[in-house]
Design a protein around this nucleic acid. Structure first.
Length: 683
RNA sequence: GGGCGAAUGGCGGAAUUGGUAGACGCGCUGGUCUUAGGAACCAGUAUUGAAAGAUGUGAAGGUUCGAGUCCUUUUUCGCCUACCA
């Protein structure tokens, strides 16, 4: 009896599918549609087990829905702009384009070997001008609608490489490559006005019944709606400063006011710029600003000014004004009123600078109450608060206080969002050029639409410092209507590329616009979107925003939620190994005997230190290459293993034994079929 | 600091609404077979006990005829987020 030859069977069917175009789809209004989409990959080189898991889950669903009679759209593309291409190009002296394209070629053939039911005719790549042309078109649309603007913003600046660093490139306050101390630098940058849609983006979450709750919660927290009050504090000063406004969610604790703190970026800082001590303080703040999570527990620092703030509820209560390192300019108004008794952060600050701590909320009306080292943030009743005494905290106290402040023109009710506008400028080469130019007065103009796409110039060798586009004089300057213009040399954040690619899949060959209206109407929204939870906030939020931005002031296109169903799969994990010198070992270097792990090579008897199971990553060397597994066991065995070992939303632990078990199962299934067929034939 | 989630054999994990806890797979134990293979097949495998039985879902309480599942408290782990006023 024959054994199952997965190689010939899989090859046969993959060829069949390709020739017959089994999975190619088009609009068919007689059939119900199903748009099944997995997050498209970044072409980093080879596929990894995470891809195998992601695309297998989607593939099974797509095939299932097709069998149920749905017209299924199941496309694949490449998120092909981004930093790794630029880094690889610098390292290996080649251009990002050929690096990216050769990776795509490799990964495409690997995905095909997985036997996915993909409509390859709809393949797209975000770095191709046919794709980013439409993105530039959309950019101009948003520009015309007033959803794009330019402002100065801080970036992480590497003074040696002369380049802007992404947050993840800043390690311990130093540039990842140069090791130079990172500086904060102000640059003019482009922004999408996403905060205009804060409320809509928040409300929209309620309609997403087929999204995991945890993702909705994360987005909700990210948008960070809070209800409070802007309070105006009169200021006593020798300088021409009359008052300072603060945003607070706890106006009811105003009688516990003991200091006012400003961000070092607050407009009033201009009066202190000459002050040497203030300059030093500011420097100290920016240093701390870039380091890790320890920020939160970092020491509270303050710079005392000569200003005095007056409590709006009691003119006799006067408190000092500080600049403080914990106050952020981009939340609220860059100024906070300090109430140490009922806010831990304020209490830490007050203790350090010996400021008054007055409790104004106590948990129980009739009992004594005292604050020691812990601020009280719970429920209770107001006291020490004159005419507010006795109000229930927080149900009555906040509203009543705001009412009082509004009636006396001392403050204003205000809803605040944590969500900041989306900075889309990147000082990089390998991205979508921003279709903007500047005239001799540095005023921006839109590149006329008939001049799109603004193509990236081909650069064979990237300079080691600065933004490569800055050095491309031939590309940078151009004539239009007899005038000389300078192109914008920043490129778009790659999150823009991925904010609409699912629309492009509906009509990937459309030339006049990013998508064909009729086809988009048929296919959208995506019925099931599948990907890693790491994109739970930014990518998904940006896509939701982008659809609203395209729909905004547009009678032809109305789509708010691009993904009606979302599934976030777990990670693929593996044990980690180290040798006695604490060097990571890959599973290939380790052999297993009776549960003990040994080196395969040099010293076969030496034991290996087995570390915890962690998500597969190159840095820990605990990866398994899908290609070699497919070669040894066949695609179906890998697919079966990765689906059946643990539920798709949970992490899966790679195990060679489990892999072999799935292989055996596939063998048994085939043999069983073979036996049955044999029986039928012989009867 | 805040949020979300998890905890069940030696291991990965089942148990969909509160109703026989441990499906399926791995590993392990014993056996059969010899085309010696990356085998295949049969039987067993929560703990304890010779057995009958007893005990068992991180810990402690509670609701219920009945709890892995619901409630309260707590511990540990994972993920996300972070000076958010």
């Amino acid at each position: 009896m024959d054994r199952y030859n997965f190689k010939s069977v899989e090859e046969k069917w993959q060829k069949f599918w390709e020739q017959k175009k089994t999975f190619s789809t088009s609009v068919d209004k007689k059939k119900p549609k199903f748009y099944c989409l997995e997050m498209f990959p970044y072409p980093s080189g080879k596929i990894h087990m995470g891809h195998v898991r992601n695309y297998t889950i989607g593939d099974v669903l797509a095939r299932f829905k097709a069998l149920q009679g749905y017209n299924v759209l199941h496309p694949m593309g490449w998120d092909s702009f981004g930093m790794p291409a630029e880094n690889a190009a610098r390292q290996n002296n080649l251009d990002p384009k050929s690096w990216t394209e050769s990776n795509i070629k490799t990964m495409r053939s690997q995905l095909k070997k997985l036997g996915l039911s993909i409509d390859w005719d709809k393949e797209i790549s975000t770095c191709s001008p046919e794709y980013y042309k439409h993105q530039q078109d959309f950019f101009l649309d948003l520009y015309d609608k007033g959803l794009v603007y330019r402002k100065e913003n801080y970036v992480n600046w590497d003074p040696i490489d002369q380049t802007v660093l992404a947050n993840e490139q800043v390690v311990d306050g130093k540039g990842w490559r140069s090791g130079a101390l990172v500086e904060r630098k102000k640059l003019n940058q482009w922004f999408f006005n996403i905060s205009k849609f804060s409320e809509e983006l928040l409300q929209g979450l309620d309609s997403l019944d087929n999204w995991p709750n945890k993702v909705k919660v994360m987005q909700k927290n990210w948008i960070g709606k809070s209800f409070g009050c802007e309070v105006e504090f009169k200021v006593e000063s020798s300088k021409p400063i009359e008052s300072i406004k603060c945003y607070t969610t706890r106006p009811d604790t105003l009688f516990g006011f003991s200091f006012l703190a400003l961000s070092v970026d607050h407009p009033l800082a201009k009066y202190y710029e000459e002050d040497k001590k203030f300059q030093e303080f500011k420097k100290e703040c920016s240093k701390a600003g870039t380091t890790e999570e320890s920020i939160a527990s970092a020491e509270k620092l303050g710079f005392k000014t000569d200003l005095i703030a007056i409590n709006p509820l009691d003119k006799n209560m006067k408190v000092p004004i500080y600049f403080a390192n914990f106050v952020l300019m981009d939340y609220g108004l860059g100024a906070v009123f300090g109430c140490p008794a009922h806010d831990q952060r304020d209490l830490d600050f007050a203790k350090k600078y010996n400021l008054k701590v007055t409790a104004v909320v106590k948990p129980e009306m009739d009992k004594e109450f005292k604050i020691d080292n812990e601020a009280y943030t719970g429920e209770g009743y107001l006291y020490n608060s004159k005419f507010l005494n006795g109000l229930k905290v927080p149900s009555e106290s906040i509203i009543k206080t705001i009412e009082f402040l509004e009636k006396n023109s001392l403050g204003e009710k205000k809803t605040n969002y944590r969500l900041k506008d989306w900075g889309i400028s990147r000082q990089r080469y390998w991205g979508c050029p921003i279709p903007i130019a500047y005239d001799e007065n540095d005023l921006p103009i839109k590149i006329p639409r008939d001049m799109l796409p603004v193509k990236l110039p081909e650069i064979k060798k990237l300079s080691s410092t600065g933004n490569p586009l800055d050095a491309e004089e031939n590309w940078k300057y151009f004539m239009l209507g007899g005038k000389k213009y300078r192109r914008e040399t920043d490129t778009l954040d790659t999150f823009v590329d991925s904010s609409w690619y699912f629309l492009r899949f509906c009509s990937p060959q459309n030339t006049d616009r990013g998508f064909n209206q009729e086809e988009a109407n048929y296919w959208m929204p995506v019925d099931q979107y599948i990907g890693g939870v790491e994109h739970a906030i930014l990518h998904l939020l940006y896509s939701r925003f982008f659809m609203r931005a395209l729909s905004y002031k547009n009678d032809n296109f109305k789509l708010e939620e691009p993904f009606s169903g979302l599934f976030t799969q777990g990670m693929v994990c593996h044990e980690t190994y180290k040798d006695h010198n604490n060097v990571w070992l890959s599973p290939e270097e380790v052999s297993s005997d009776d549960g003990k792990k040994f080196f395969k090579k040099d010293s076969p008897s030496e034991k290996v230190i087995v570390g915890p199971t962690e998500s597969m990553s190159k840095s820990k060397k605990n990866t398994i290459d899908p290609e070699s597994i497919i070669k040894n066991y066949g695609a179906d065995s890998v697919r079966l293993f990765i689906l059946s070992d643990s539920p798709p939303e949970k992490d899966v632990q790679w195990s060679d034994q489990g892999m072999i078990a799935s292989f055996k199962f596939v063998q048994k299934l085939w043999t069983l079929n073979y036996k049955i067929l044999d029986k039928i034939k012989n009867n």
